[in-house]
Design a protein around this nucleic acid. Structure first.
Length: 270
DNA sequence: AAAACTACCTGAGTGC
DNA sequence: TGCACTCAGGTAGTTT
């Protein structure tokens, strides 16, 4: 997926095309996503989009009667196109807007979801227990320190836990740990406070940098206009096993943590 | 309570 | 060419 920078890039990309526009139709070709597409979304035609926002990796599309919660899962993307554009394989649904513009949802692995809530989305069961946003000042060294206290598990797993901070997936966890010089397998509780502060800063910095580049495109992710993100060329360790570290030249190592591929520089990260 | 594991899917790549 | 296998950006829900 789409980690936070990719979702934020999508959010910013679609917002100006959606806000204030009326939905004229709702087309579902494949309702079987990770969770079934919520039938309540059939009430969208006739309603006008009021807001497009994001909480963690969920996109929130606000209407007068409620909010659509959209998750891109592992391989999802949203694209704006003309209604006449041929449907591709894995284009599972479309929000049709006035002027016959389609917001098409494409997701080969179908790990995403389209849900609906008539209430405050922040109180939705999938959102209410999430941790702080990394980019709005709610996440800092103190929050990270609290999440690490007494925890034996690896710092990378703590970083990827949405109760610690939202939006940090496998790529950016690896990158932030490299920037902070911390070994991904290090026990969370065994990291000095000033190093955790540095890590919290690295998380924010790497996410902001990636957003400026339009996110990371490995295989599936594309922006709302079909263009890729350009952060991939800035990755320092992710998917670079065997290649030299950009700082010290040591060979980047791949390990497995929490069943996820993990990349680090054995010399720079301790 | 925390940590470990499972499940949901398709497609790309690799080795034989 | 084809088969068997591994791996992939997430995360909710269950089990240990």
């Amino acid at each position: 997926m789409p980690e936070l920078p990719e979702v934020e890039t999508t959010c910013r990309g679609i917002r100006p095309h959606l806000c204030g526009r009326r939905v004229t139709d709702w087309i579902v070709r494949q309702p079987r996503l990770r969770r079934p597409v919520d039938g309540a979304l059939a009430a969208l035609p006739g309603q006008q989009v009021e807001t497009v926002g994001r909480r963690a990796k969920y996109l929130l599309i606000g209407f007068p009667s409620g909010t659509a919660l959209v998750h891109l899962g592992m391989s999802g993307s949203l694209r704006l196109c003309a209604g006449s554009t041929p449907w591709r394989k894995h284009d599972h649904l479309a929000l049709v807007l006035e002027g016959d513009r389609h917001l098409r949802y494409h997701d080969p692995r179908r790990f995403g979801c389209w849900l609906w809530t008539a209430d405050d989305p922040a109180e939705h069961p999938l959102l209410r227990d999430l941790g702080p946003e990394p980019l709005d000042g709610a996440f800092d060294g103190a929050r990270l320190k609290a999440a690490c206290a007494g925890r034996r598990r690896s710092i990378k797993e703590t970083l990827m836990d949405a109760r610690t901070v939202v939006g940090v997936g496998n790529i950016y966890a690896c990158e932030a740990l490299f920037m902070a010089g911390i070994h991904p397998a290090r026990a969370s509780a065994r990291i000095a406070p000033q190093r955790l502060t540095r890590l919290a800063d690295a998380v924010r910095n790497v996410l902001e940098h990636s957003i400026r580049q339009g996110g990371t495109t490995l295989r599936d992710f594309l922006r709302e206009d079909g263009s890729p993100g350009y952060f991939r060329q800035h990755l320092r360790v992710y998917d670079r096993a065997g290649q030299p570290c950009s700082v010290c030249g040591a060979s980047i190592r791949r390990t497995v943590l929490g069943q996820r591929s993990t990349y680090h520089c054995p010399r720079c990260q301790r």
